[in-house]
């Protein structure tokens, strides 16, 4: 299957929103390719006619009554917020400013 270049590794890190240092990217390039080599064994199996398994127990359509239940009070729900203003979480501006919104 695929071989990852350094640029591919950097692209995947961006998709995963992981800020990695150069030495981490270099190490991951070798490690990920070594792990991907192990995946090649799967190509030996003909699976066109095999359905995928996403879950192993025969449960479906788990429903509940659509009724309000108590939930966490706002103060408790916000209790771990790194930065907070009143009942709101504080994050850097998404629109305008330094272009984070793309």
């Amino acid at each position: 299957m695929g071989t990852l270049s350094r640029a591919d590794v950097a692209h995947v890190a961006h998709l995963a929103r992981l800020g990695l240092r150069e030495e981490e990217l270099a190490r991951l390039e070798g490690e990920l390719n070594h792990i991907l080599d192990q995946y090649a064994i799967l190509a030996r199996l003909a699976t066109d006619a095999i359905p995928p398994t996403a879950q192993t127990i025969a449960l479906e359509n788990i429903l509940r009554e659509d009724v309000a239940r108590p939930s966490l009070p706002v103060d408790v729900a916000l209790g771990n917020a790194p930065d907070r203003q009143g009942d709101h979480l504080v994050v850097p501006a998404i629109l305008g400013g330094d272009g984070g919104g793309g």
Binding site: A16, L18, G19, P82, V91, P92, G100
Partner: peptide, 22 residues
């Protein structure tokens, strides 16, 4: 790094994600 857990501000929102998770 927004609602809970380790948070590092990295300029914009994307930079904060990268820094907090990295």
């Amino acid at each position: 790094g927004v609602r809970y857990g380790h948070a590092v501000r990295g300029g914009d929102v994307l930079g904060s994600y990268l820094a907090s998770r990295g």
